[in-house]
Nucleic acid binder design. Sequence first.
RNA 1: UGGGGCAUGGUGCAAUGGCAGCACACCGGACUUUGAAUCCGUGAAUCUUGGUUCGACUCCAAGUGCCCCGGCCA
Length: 559
Amino acid sequence: MTEESLTKTNFIRDIIDEHNRTGRFGGRVHTRFPPEPNGYLHIGHAKALVIDFGMAEDYGGLTNLRYDDTNPVKEDVEFVDAIKEDIHWLGFDWGDREYYASDYFEPLYEMAVKLINKGKAYVDELSADEMREYRGTLTEPGKNSPWRDRPIAENQDLFKRMRAGEFPDGSLTLRAKIDMASPNMNMRDPVMYRIIHTEHHRTGNKWCIYPMYDFAHGQSDSLECITHSMCSLEYENHRPLYDWFLDELEIFHPQQIEFARLNLTHTVMSKRKLRKLVEEGHVAGWTDPRMPTLAAMRRRGYPPTAIREFIDTIGVAKADSFVEVELLEHIVRDQLNLTSPRRMAVLERLKVVIDNYPSDLEEEFDVPDFPQDPENSATRKVPFGRVIYIERSDFEETPPPKYFRLSPGREVRLMNAYYVTCTGVVKDEHGNLLEIHCNYDPETRGGMSPDGRKVKGTIHWVAENHAIDAECRLYEQMFANEHPEDLPEGETFMDYFDPDSKKVLIAKLEPSLTEAKVGEVFQFVRNGYFTLDSEDSKPGALIFNRTIGLVDSWAKVHK
RNA sequence: UGGGGCAUGGUGCAAUGGCAGCACACCGGACUUUGAAUCCGUGAAUCUUGGUUCGACUCCAAGUGCCCCGGCCA
């Protein structure tokens, strides 16, 4: 396998390779990640992150972090720290290159003045409604604003007074003088500056005019000498404008490249919808483990490397696409399988009394954390006793075909312990199962029989005397529908929100789990991967999140 | 007066004029002290119609379908 074949090729690499061939940027690759601080980062941002940081890394370049904070009414400091934490968690680093579009308000203002002086920008007095009317439609040209040909000196004066705060919000705008008949709506004299008398989270009350995205982004890229400015497909129509400003300003000209954003089945990605889930209390905040935010995935126990591998696996292209969430889950399981120590925990318990086990006897087994690789595996002590708990689903009084767990008269292996045979059941007056009784075979200590006798079923257990209680939170997809963002008329994504996507139970755990630490993920054998909840768990009142269940092919056959 | 994009198995991504491949999902089997993992195997795709070419997923033309654009949001 050659070096190149390890790295998947994609159209962005092709473009960069071409630039390197022609020498457009002198072989330099410098990217930027430009989040707006108005919400938490989600798995869709992870794609942008991997592209922005990953591409630069691969080509020996750097990536800047730059907050796109040009709209003070929508943005908040609350999110800037959360965003940084998420980026670091994924393993990316911007060094000391932490920038803000608001750092450039002064040079941006100068650039606007330059365009005014060139006769390429003007102060408009049209109201928002009027401007909409003048803009025309998709199929009809717009018409020029009556203020479009105002003398340059007047524009200079008015713009200066806009900055000075002489005018109320919405009364004036600065617009680029391009072409009201352009088939590209973005070129119909786009607004460059608007008046907003709102305190900005960084610049305070210094400014009351704020640049629009289109007037800020390209020039910020230029100021930072960014070479490749990757963004999502909907900005494709903005590229001519991105280029126009840079050309008219005659400043360094980065290349904007657009790619398809990530869509995942069974989830919603729009900030508006995620915010709704949070604000209406359907989930416990932005870090509720069901959320597609990076903070939620961290809390849930997803390894950051799994997220990066996932993004690498899905590739980058320009076609709109929907990735099945099963692929993400597969990669999470795949990594956790290799790294998670095994433990025994009984989620929904059934009491088992081993009648022929001496009531004064208690044993301890040394059990490897990684039974696949016992030679290199650490071990821990697991106590055993006359009364144990097993999983309720591991016993059937009348077993269905192909069932090879416990049922009356049948023998199974208690993992790492003994073979037991079910001898009877105890029920209450309503016929509810209370407990079952077994006999064990002392010859099978450790789970092996000297006579070579086979048992088909191996089940896990926890000794009653030493079990610890812990809350376990089990999560399913938040939305039953594959495409909750693409619904027929009259339906909303909330129609498909599944309130049962979170289930809480009190489980019985083997005692070694008392020492679990936040950030460690365990495999609760035959149940799935679990991690301590970073927000709600307390010593003595442990709470575990199920990161993800194990593949359950029995459930498939059985149903 | 409309413009800009995109089309390969169920899903996602490759193949850059030379045998359509990989992963997930699905289905079957083997193995198993986790019905997990692992191993083996089956099925399944180039939007349509023309053209260029010895040869087309790839180039050309026409068509079809889907996405984006009429915020003083980003």
